[in-house]
Design a protein around this nucleic acid. Sequence first.
RNA 1: GGAAAGGUAGCUCAGCUGGUUAGAGCACGGCACUCAUAAUGCCGGGGUCGAGGGUUCGAGUCCCUCCCUUUCCA
Length: 680
Amino acid sequence: MPVRRILVTHALPYANGALHLGHMVESVQTDIWVRFQRLRGNDCLFVCAEDCHGTPIMIRAQQDGITPEQLIATSAADHQRDYAGFAIGFDHFHSTHSEENRHYSYELYHALARRGAIARRTIEQAYDEQAGMFLPDRFVRGTCPRCGTPDQYGDSCESCGATYSPADLKDAVSTLTGTKPVLRSSEHLFFQLGQFEQDLREWLANNNLQPAVRAKLDEWFEAGLKDWDISRDAPYFGFEIPDAPGKYFYVWFDAPIGYIGSFAALAAKRGLDFDAYWKAGATTELHHFIGKDISYFHTLFWPAVLHGAGYRRPTGVHVHGFLTVDGQKMSKSRGTFITAQRYLELLPADPLRYYFAAKLGNGLDDIDLNLGDFTARVNSDVVGKLVNIASRCAPFIERAGGELADALPDPALYQQFTAAADGIAALFENRDYAGAIREIMQLADRANQYVDQQKPWVLAKDPAKLDEARSVATEAINLFRVLMTWLAPVLPGIAAKAEGWLGAGTLSHWDGTGEPLLGIAIGKYPQLATRLDPVVVKQLVATPPAPAAAPSAAAKVAAKPAQDKPVEKSVIGIDDFAKLDLRAAKVLAAARVEGSDKLLQLTLDLGAEQRNVFSGIAASYAPEQLVGRFVVMIANLAPRKMRFGVSEGMVLCASGPKEGGEGVFLLDVDAGVQPGMKIS
RNA sequence: GGAAAGGUAGCUCAGCUGGUUAGAGCACGGCACUCAUAAUGCCGGGGUCGAGGGUUCGAGUCCCUCCCUUUCCA
């Protein structure tokens, strides 16, 4: 089979908030497909980028008192940390606020303009006079003109579903300043989508889109393709449009071009042929994985823009549903808004990758993370069935000298397994991972049945039959190796450990299972996976101690860790504890913070240095009480920017209900302690 | 408001173009086994397939109405 050259993307994470498990459904789905392609021997590239532009980012940076560049740098770092934690194997992670992206945004724009696909029209929009800017629909709220529900967004009513423009709202206010927006006119640039209807229809006809996506497209065609406003007025964080000073590209114009920009950066690094991947007539494959909320952009605008600019169109746009937790939409108040970071603090990535895979079909159905089911499924399938095959057989190999037997006692059974490879590959290729997992687990049952029937533990009791026991174990371990190879895209962590055990390269090729492993020495069996502890899994939906996406400083300080469930924490090792740099610190100065009734600003002496720390203890301690006393602090907590300044650590307190309300109590140290002494 | 997907055993889900007594895994009960991370194997109980109509020799599977869930709407 010829090697396919494939470029894959998933949606770009927006630089305004933490990744949550909903994002990871998409990342995991995409990453499994990419790893599967590589396992099959195809040349598969996977690129992504931080999505950096737009009003929300501009506003958020203003609120945080930092530049948009600082905001997106922090966000990109957080996002990449989380992706790495879930073993998402990008070849390159770029940024839409990059020179490459500017270059291609301009190039595509000019190409579209040259062919007359860009029109200019004056439109009226809500304008906030105090903030001095036009307001996106989402930044205007007011009473629904139809049903009278208060506090609705400027584009549609959540209660009755009516759609309208911000000007239709009753009592409209700007969410930025609370003032009443006025209408102001401005010239905008429009991409004339309608020009490309025939091209789009032709593309769709040759594209294997999911039926539900196709149905949605038909609906849009039916309604008529409308021009797309691709410009926004200053102030805006983005790329200024070359021939329209004071106008910027709408974030959704340059975001998908970020796929190109990211690839261009990768191509420069590796010397890849850019045109072979992006220019019209390219024979490589281009696959986008996206959520159903953005299919309009990816199945209409994007192919039309690409085509209009002389670029190739996607080979596939693969749309998935959303994630619910325990049957309900993720919700911060219910605690089911689980960030990627929070998950990784508690659990390894492979179990969740497995669970998502076990539920992902190729449709747009939402998938549910049911925590009880998650625990049971992973423990039963991955540990009880799959890993069990290896762990129950390994001792017989070790007792017999550590080498696999020279022949399989039951080659027919082995063949029965490998005969399923093509069918399973087809399921992975078609992104029906749930189907693939079902088949694989059925075979895992079969392998355990085999071991049960052969009873190697009985054979091994007779020294003369130890060799037979080894043969049985060799057979089973080879069956395990076949299953593990197929599951390697889903379980990269476990697969890596298993490969360390069976030998480098033994799980790296889909077709490598054609020949069994025989007569070779294998390593000492390592623990491949551990069972999930339901108590820890439950903590996923406990109120997180520190929200990653920090809202206002005051709100954050006010938030108290939930302590109604006494001691229900996961067990940590000494290494985890060692990560904390706890120090005794002497308070040199303490002052109330203007504008906050909770915070005190402390200057702490750590011996070698001084730290500025904000602490939410103003209700319990007066500044005068504190000067000169010792406190316990975490010295290696990442500095946190607050409205009032940067906090360089955290002072530890005991807190909880006491007579007459909530109490906060500082920790003390015994006499003789010097500033900066380490606590362990 | 328009639209999509879904509602099948306690839980999570399979059931293709309608056809013998509706399936799997988990959970539950019993037995076996003790090699394995209290893992595994065998057997079993458990479903009026959301509700009500209709088409058909025959419907979980097609049609209509209604209810519920999730989601999308540039």
